[in-house]
Nucleic acid binder design. Structure first.
Lengths: 126, 126
DNA sequence: CAGAATCCAACCGGATACTG
DNA sequence: CAGTATCCGGTTGGATTCTG
């Protein structure tokens, strides 16, 4: 089937081919868009961090969520998990080279949201 | 109270002051992190678009979600709504200058997610 | 055309308690 | 220390129907 290019009743531009790029945004959001996902990744950028430290760094997130996002990031290859020794069990998480490729857009997001006025924007208008 | 800087039992670095920056990421995600929010904004970057066109552009999103995100974006000042005429009612949405400031990080996200392999990443490991 | 209303399912996230 | 288990509420998102 050839590409359809139709004009609307009043000659508006075609809309049919518009769904190529934004899906990418949606996909990225699916991976990085969790409430804590970005923060976790961000905290790992300077070196490996242990579970409880991460948990403390990200005050506000429960250990459950940390663990959950961590396992998701691990499954997707952005984060690596490493058990250190056998006494009081110790686990370090580190960002992978692949995970590092995501830091650019996280940084762009950070930059943007830091430029926001503190109030009125994140407050729901209702 | 002075800033506390404590060392862990094995001399690890302080963790107390770590919660300054990543909160920004979380905030940004709260605004742009909706499943369709980014796509909507992205589709508006080239000029005003009408509701149903937007709905068609973002195949996969229900009109309910489009309307909901649109109202949220409007409340936050990233998008402006304008009623055009009075026959078959017509409404155009356009991105505001403020909304445009978010395009940079959306573009970074798009760039990143386009660099991803098509499979294995968005699939859930389970 | 541009929604609002309703209903419903799935997921997300938090609190608490428990384990090796 | 590094999680897991359980429960529970809120939000998100989708389908469908209705309206002016």
């Amino acid at each position: 089937m050839e590409a359809r290019v139709e004009l609307g009743p009043r000659g508006r531009k075609s809309v049919v081919d518009a769904c190529t790029k934004p899906c990418a945004i949606e996909r990225g959001m699916r991976i990085l868009g969790g409430k804590w996902t970005g923060s976790i990744l961000w905290h790992l950028k300077d070196g490996p961090v242990r579970f409880n430290d991460l948990s403390r760094m990200i005050g506000g997130a429960s250990k459950k969520m940390i663990a959950e996002r961590l396992r998701q990031l691990e499954a997707r290859g952005l984060v690596a998990r490493e058990v250190i020794d056998g006494g009081p069990i110790t686990v370090e998480y580190r960002i992978t080279p692949f995970g590092e490729t995501a830091l650019d857009c996280l940084d762009a997001l950070r930059l943007w949201s830091e430029s926001l006025p503190a109030d009125g924007v994140d407050a729901n208008g209702s």
